[in-house]
Simulated scan of single mutants.
Amino acid sequence: MVSYQLVIDCAAPERMARFWAGALRYTVEPPPDGFDTWWDYWRSLGVPEEELGKGDGSDSIVDPEGYGPRIWFQQVPEGKVVKNRFHLDVKVGGKREDVPLETRKARVDAEAERLVQVGASIVRVLSQPGVDHYAVAMVDPEGNEFDVV
């Protein structure tokens, strides 16, 4: 069996964890049993204080249903400077064969607006007349691209 986690480089892990937990309907991963914070856990393993950073170390999120991967937000010193080489699609519209385009558009627009309220920004609408596709290109609080489809 293969398991994996998605790792996203960022400047502010706790902020990104909160944003993406809300965006994906995940939860911020609690520290292991017996520890009040992630920093307490890492200290117990001998991680030096200067490597811990600020906040309480809540830098990962998990799918409460247990289906999606764990996502860890890794603090890095450099900022994002170019377009992502891959991105997430947040799927809320429904399948073409089951849901009419106008309904999918309404669902996508509603989710995009919800994400704007929690810190995302709209880049552009991805739609062409006569094409049965609708999406909204967005960026998270640190400028990482993703689409709502």
Rank of each mutant, 00 (worst) to 15 (best):
G93Q: 02
G57W: 10
D36M: 03
G55W: 12
D59Y: 00
F35N: 09
R43I: 00
V81A: 15
G66C: 05
V76D: 11
E29I: 00
V28R: 02
K91T: 03
Q74S: 15
V47S: 01
D56K: 14
S60W: 01
R85V: 03
R96E: 13
W38D: 08
D59S: 15
S44M: 02
N84P: 02
E97Y: 13
V81S: 13
P77F: 06
G34L: 03
Y41M: 04
P64A: 15
V90W: 04
E65Q: 13
E78I: 08
Y41L: 08
V92R: 14
D40T: 04
E29F: 01
I61M: 15
F19K: 08
R25T: 09
G46M: 07
I71K: 11
R70V: 11
V76L: 11
W42M: 10
Q74M: 10
G94K: 14
E51Q: 11
P30G: 05
R85N: 12
V90E: 03
P31L: 06
E50M: 07
G93E: 06
W72P: 00
D40S: 08
E65A: 15
A17L: 03
Y67N: 13
A23V: 01
G34H: 02
P31K: 10
F35L: 10
E97L: 12
D40W: 09
A21W: 02
Y67P: 00
G93A: 04
E51F: 07
G57S: 04
P69G: 08
G46Y: 03
V92Q: 07
P48M: 14
L45I: 03
E50S: 12
W72C: 09
F73C: 15
G93W: 13
I71V: 08
S60H: 09
G94W: 00
L45P: 01
W39D: 09
P32C: 01
P77L: 04
E29Q: 13
G93K: 09
W39S: 06
E78T: 12
D33C: 02
G68F: 00
W42L: 15
A17Y: 00
E65V: 08
E50I: 00
P31T: 10
I71Q: 10
S44I: 01
G34K: 03
V82H: 14
W42S: 12
V28N: 04
W20A: 02
P48I: 00
P64V: 14
P64T: 12
W20G: 02
G53W: 04
G55I: 00
G68K: 14
E97C: 10
P48E: 14
A21E: 13
L24N: 02
N84R: 12
G79Q: 10
L45F: 09
E49C: 11
P77S: 04
E29L: 08
A17K: 09
K91E: 15
V90K: 11
G68S: 05
N84C: 09
V28L: 11
T27I: 09
G79P: 02
A23F: 01
D36W: 11
K54R: 12
E51S: 04
K80T: 02
D89L: 01
P30E: 12
G22Q: 07
V76W: 10
